[in-house]
Amino acid sequence: MIALTDQPINTDEVIAAVQANGAGAINVFIGTVRNKTQTKAVVRLEFEAYESMALKKMQELADQASARWPVQKVAIVHRTGVLPIGEAAVVIAVSTPHRKASFEACEFIIDTLKEIVPIWKKEIFEDGEVWVAAHP
């Protein structure tokens, strides 16, 4: 499951997508919208994506993780549009035979996703807004 959506992410569906008989571990990362960046109160986030390229890059990440670790299945779902505080912006699930590989593969996917996938985040504050670099 590799997807972009403008609807709330169903975490249970993402986890179910990586269920596998050979999996002894499923690691799930859920990136959520927080209410503060440093000292500024965040009102909401807005995400935009170059959809066809983002989906291609997300699949490449899943393929790279599968080449580096004994991955059974990978799911990556990222939101677009306007997200309120507390909403899941991204859900990544990875199943592997053992826990260490699932943690490592999941961390690789989220870190690399922020660097190479064309998804842009705008933070909206009470007194303005700013586009955020993945790794400022």
Rank of each mutant, 00 (worst) to 15 (best):
A16T: 07
Q59K: 14
E48K: 11
R79F: 03
E87M: 01
V77S: 03
V14P: 04
F47V: 02
F125L: 04
Y50H: 15
L61H: 08
A23K: 14
A101S: 05
R44K: 14
E126K: 05
Q64I: 14
E48I: 01
A88K: 04
E48A: 13
Q72G: 10
K36T: 14
E129D: 09
W120G: 01
G24E: 11
V71F: 04
A62G: 09
I119K: 01
I116P: 02
E107V: 05
A41G: 01
D12E: 15
V71K: 09
A101E: 09
P136H: 04
D63Q: 11
I110C: 07
F103M: 08
T39V: 14
I92C: 07
Q7E: 15
V28C: 04
L113N: 00
E51W: 09
D127K: 01
K40H: 13
W120P: 06
R79A: 06
K121V: 03
R99M: 15
T112I: 07
E13G: 13
T32L: 08
E129R: 00
M1L: 03
V14L: 02
Q64D: 03
V28K: 00
E129Q: 09
G22V: 15
V82D: 09
S66T: 06
S102L: 02
V14E: 15
V117F: 09
E107R: 11
E60R: 04
P8Y: 08
E60Q: 13
E115H: 10
A25C: 11
K57N: 02
A133L: 06
L55K: 07
H135Q: 14
A101F: 02
K73S: 09
T80E: 03
K57D: 06
W131A: 07
P136A: 08
A93R: 01
I26Y: 01
I119E: 15
I2P: 02
